[in-house]
Amino acid sequence: MEGVPIRNARRGDIPSLLLLWNAMMKEISATDSRFALHARAQEHQTAQFQRWLQDEKHLIVVAEEGGRLITGFAIASVTAGNGWQIPVRVGRISDIYVAAPRRRQGVARRLTGRLLDLLYETGVGTVRLSVAVGNDGAHAFWRSMGWDDLEVVLQKGVEPGQETAPGA
């Protein structure tokens, strides 16, 4: 089945990327307040998109419908490992999001596939990503794609009752 086209992002995509990024963060923080945004997050993220689109170590791909509507995006980067453990270089998928009305049509799989192809071309052999603990759907999605759990990141707020995990 022919899916929605996936292409590398361009500077003109930044407004659409920001809209989708905001929607993604809103969904995540709605289920876990520990992901609530900083007051300057918008401003920061706009600058990040501008920088990343000019940085060969960052890869941004988008799903585009009808040559004009961006319905999903994914971001990865290539970084050095920590210096003592394998891998020496690692690809990191930091964001992937598909607009709610376009889900369950294979867009996320296609975005991921394109990113992995691009990462492979850079010579990276290992890729990592993080999933919020309450996001069971995303966790199941990645595991169904052959990803395995490696680590868990735990957090503690300094002020009593400051933040709690979903369901805690």
């Binding site: 290992t126 890729v127 990592r128 993080s130 052959g146 990141v153």
Partner: peptide, 13 residues
């Protein structure tokens, strides 16, 4: 007092 925040997953290319 720490609570799980994120899982880190890995895949070999």
């Amino acid at each position: 007092g720490y609570q799980p925040l994120q899982y880190v997953l890995e895949r070999r290319l």
